[in-house]
């Protein structure tokens, strides 16, 4: 920032945003994961190096059995590597105890699941405020923030409905609001459109994208939904437990047509 020339707030914000984009939020270093299945050792990951930057929208693609889910769980702090390191916000996940892990999951990461996973006994609003309660917010604070999030996803009028009274798309919207409850650094979306039809799936993808653009939250999604590719900043292809290749946005259009052509 130059000292002689006063800058407008917008300019400062822009600079901060630029600096943020360069920041690495998740970094994996030669991550390996071996599962012991009876007598057989299964190498789910064979050394993955990956950097995920703040504010980007990253998709992890790969066929089932490629290690996609394993890598996804690793970067989400849900699983620990057999070898190698995973840093989330420059903190080595393997070093965290149960309490710190819970803190990390609560404050830094928001999760969106394929099957929505709303708590069935709770209303939409209670589902959204649950992570805030875990974070220690008072019920007034969390109620206010929960309503704000629900209106952002367009479901403010459904706040008192239970999950079974909502459609799949609506449930996933509530889940998106819940994932954003504690202003996380990263939102992990595991096949977020897997249980939705084409139209609602597209709506959820657009919702995620707009959340990514407005609040600058990093979104990592594991998917094989090609609709997801067009909104991604980068796409990581996983194959046989390794990063096959990484495509940036400008290269994506060609990739998408190729992939679609193969089917």
């Amino acid at each position: 920032m130059s000292e002689d020339k006063p800058q407008s707030t917008a300019e400062v914000v822009e600079k901060i945003v630029e600096a943020e984009e360069q920041r690495t939020v998740v970094r994996t270093q030669d991550v390996k994961k071996i599962y012991q299945m009876g007598e057989v050792e299964v190498h789910a990951l064979r050394g993955v190096d990956l950097e995920i930057y703040a504010g980007e929208y990253l998709s992890i693609m790969g066929p089932s059995g490629s290690g996609k889910s394993t890598l996804f769980n690793m970067v989400g702090g849900l699983d620990k590597p057999s070898d190698g390191k995973v840093y989330i916000d420059e903190v080595d996940v393997a070093q965290l105890d149960a309490y710190e892990l819970a803190w990390l999951r609560c404050r830094k990461i928001g999760y969106i699941f394929q099957s929505f996973n709303l708590i069935p006994v709770m209303t939409a609003l209670e589902n959204v405020t649950l992570p805030m309660v875990f974070a220690g917010l008072t019920s007034d604070e969390s109620r206010e923030k929960g309503m704000e999030l629900l209106s952002k996803v367009g479901l403010a009028d459904r706040h008192s409905h239970k999950p079974f009274e909502l459609s799949g798309g609506q449930q996933q919207r509530v889940a998106v609001a819940r994932a954003l409850a504690n202003d996380p650094t990263v939102v992990l979306a595991d096949e977020p459109t897997g249980n939705l039809d084409l139209k609602t799936g597209t709506e959820i993808i657009e919702l995620l994208r707009s959340m990514n653009e407005t609040s600058g939250v990093t979104i990592i999604s594991a998917t094989h939904d090609h609709k997801m590719l067009s909104v991604s900043d980068r796409v990581v292809w996983i194959k046989d437990g390794r990063v096959d290749h990484i495509a940036n946005r400008d290269e994506l259009d060609i990739e998408v047509t190729q992939v679609e052509g193969e089917e």
């Binding site: 849900l78 149960a98 309490y99 819970a102 803190w103 999951r105 609560c106 404050r107 999760y111 699941f113 099957s115 996973n117 708590i119 069935p120 649950l130 992570p131 875990f134 974070a135 819940r178 504690n182």
Partner: peptide
């Protein structure tokens, strides 16, 4: 089990 897993993802401690 899935509900419990979800709660843990959201930051619930074992004690909760």
């Amino acid at each position: 089990f899935r509900e419990i897993g979800t709660m843990k993802c959201l930051g619930a401690l074992d004690s909760f």
